[in-house]
Design a protein around this nucleic acid. Structure first.
Lengths: 343, 343
DNA sequence: AATCACTCCCAAAGCGCTTTGGATTTCGCT
DNA sequence: AGCGAAATCCAAAGCGCTTTGGGAGTGATT
């Protein structure tokens, strides 16, 4: 069923039917009702392509998901972020299209999205330091919103980020207050912007507590379970092992815990652990006493909000860029405790 | 830059330019070359919407990702599957659109996808027993391919699945051969088709080994870490604890391991564990001796292949439905060993 | 010289919608 | 009764592409 058929069916012109359906005022209430009923009865929905052609809008947002070219890894937070963003899109009549791109040729994907006029805007995932994509999108004139930030970028742009710096500063301070002096950091890849900020929060706070930063206690890599495990094992078996570890992802934290227990140590007693928790649905860390003490911030919620910000920016191209900084919540679980006394 | 401008630029008609670009033979080699060069120089790519309108094809495949209405959970395998499918789409000039739907009103989403003519076909994720979506899509006349199968469905349809039954049969036999007689099953939700098949493989093999099936050793639920942990803890602290556990997902398996170690037991010595491993990028279970003995099958590879099958079916609507059954590989790691002797 | 078969190119229609610029009818008022 | 404004509705153009149904031009063949 298309507009033409529907309008013939009703004995009205396409114009009137279109207007009735799209809420224009030039249609009497009775006619509108009649049209809406008929549309429902015939299960009519305008073709999104034709509509897009006619209006010049794609009613579509693009997500380019970066796949690590090194390990072919898809960031696990992606599913939950998308689920959140999808809610917003559904509510506002938008579609979401997904492209998968190795993280070294994303530029091509963005250009193509623009060239074939497939989207009205895009969401940028996993921004890195001085991320070139921001300048690129700016130059292309393609509206965008960034999940995270890209330090070193001069242009103003719309973003939503967790306050990674303060989250890790608080976590570090929390550990210092418990008497820990040797605190390890199991971080994401160094060129990721969030990793940089977290490290900054960590280092600054250590300094404030008069603890010198020991490079041997800082690891960064792709946040797999194995990475958490190996980093922790290395640190624990090395000289002057840490009594606490700060970790950038729940998945790695599972590896951290494994390494601790493998050494016959008890997490929360011998070694304290704080991890960042994106509140992924299949890795709940909640309940009365969560297992991990964590800096928590729901990535699904981030998806919902950032999608809104982007749609708003598209709806009103004149509006200035918006920014949103979420504060992570520090959830105290059973993975932290006072530093063991040295006897 | 659009077709009209480009053709004026070249002093050719739109027809000729379009044909040159789309590989039709009615264009001289020289002209074609000239056109292609110009297109590249001006960064011209046809608007996918206009092209879609003109050809009647959307050049788009839809993925409807089910979000558990109970726990708002997005299946973690999703990211990797999409990454695989995305490779295929990119290669063949297709786009992928994503809709997120609570798993109880997916029907509406499919209908809408069809009504607004947004896609040429869809991939069905997470099929359940007697899944109504298959009949629905069949009736809608929307081409589709299923990742998994839906037992009880009479219609022929295109699917790709892991041989869950044989995988779990082999795993069970492997444990029996090691002398285990009390084997627990930590499975996915019972209404999921794969869970049903895995249980079947497990039960059948137990019977073949003259071991009676104990309902107390079978758990099913959403495959979170916590679920693996709780199920295992329950079984281990209950009467007549199992000496081995079969688990349906790596994530749950991490919880299984946690419960085992919490009891002061050693995985692979006191309690053997075999898990299904979808080869997710952030949960590698590989290396010389993987941690978990596992039935492994790459879900990313499944994505690649199933997308191909769907595109083929769309390209040739007359072709009969295709099926593809992947055999999981049994990888022996360090989580299994001979059953401990009862003293 | 006329015909034929190609080769190479073009004008115009059509895909399903929105939107512009009227046309027609109705209604309240003088 | 006459008139302008408001209320309704419509025909047709246009969005950017593909595709149909020719129409020139060029050699080769009769």
């Amino acid at each position: 069923m298309n507009l033409k058929e529907l309008s013939q069916n009703l004995g009205l012109s396409q114009t009137t039917v279109s207007r009735a359906l799209n809420g224009y005022p030039e249609v009497s209430a009775r006619t509108r009702q009649r049209v809406q009923d008929a549309a429902r009865a015939h299960n009519y929905t305008p073709s999104i392509r034709a509509k897009g052609l006619a209006t010049g809008k794609a009613l579509t947002i693009g997500h380019v998901i970066p796949v690590s070219s090194r390990h072919e890894m898809v960031n696990p937070i992606f599913g939950d972020f998308i689920a959140g963003a999808g809610e917003t899109y559904a509510k506002r009549g938008y579609q979401m299209i997904l492209s998968v791109a190795a993280d070294d040729d994303e530029a091509k994907v963005y250009k193509e999205l623009k060239a074939r006029r497939a989207v009205d805007g895009v969401i940028v995932h996993g921004p890195r330091m001085d991320d070139p994509r921001i300048t690129l999108l700016h130059d292309l004139g393609l509206p965008f919103a960034v999940h995270g930030r890209a330090s070193g970028c001069r242009l103003p742009y719309t973003w939503l980020d967790v306050n990674n710096r303060s989250a890790f500063a608080r976590a570090t301070a929390f550990l210092c207050d418990l008497g820990h002096r040797r605190i390890g950091l199991v971080n994401g890849l160094e060129d990721m912007d969030f990793a940089h900020r977290r490290r900054d929060g960590y280092c600054t706070t250590l300094a404030a507590c008069d603890i010198s930063v020991d490079p041997a206690l800082m690891r960064s890599g792709e946040m797999t379970e194995t990475f958490g495990y190996q980093s922790t094992r290395d640190m624990l078996t090395g000289p002057d092992a840490p009594t606490a570890i700060l970790c950038s992802s729940m998945i790695s934290a599972l590896g951290v815990r494994r390494a601790i227990e493998e050494q016959g140590l008890v997490m929360g007693r011998d070694v304290s652990v704080i991890t960042h928790d994106d509140a992924l649905s299949y890795l709940q860390n909640s309940g009365d006493t969560p297992i991990f003490t964590a800096t928590r911030s729901s990535v699904r919620d981030a998806g919902r909000r950032l999608a809104q910000m982007l749609l708003d920016a598209i709806a009103d191209p004149c509006q200035s860029t918006r920014q949103h900084l979420l504060e992570a919540e520090l959830v105290v679980g059973s993975s932290t405790g006072p530093a063991p006394r040295k006897d």
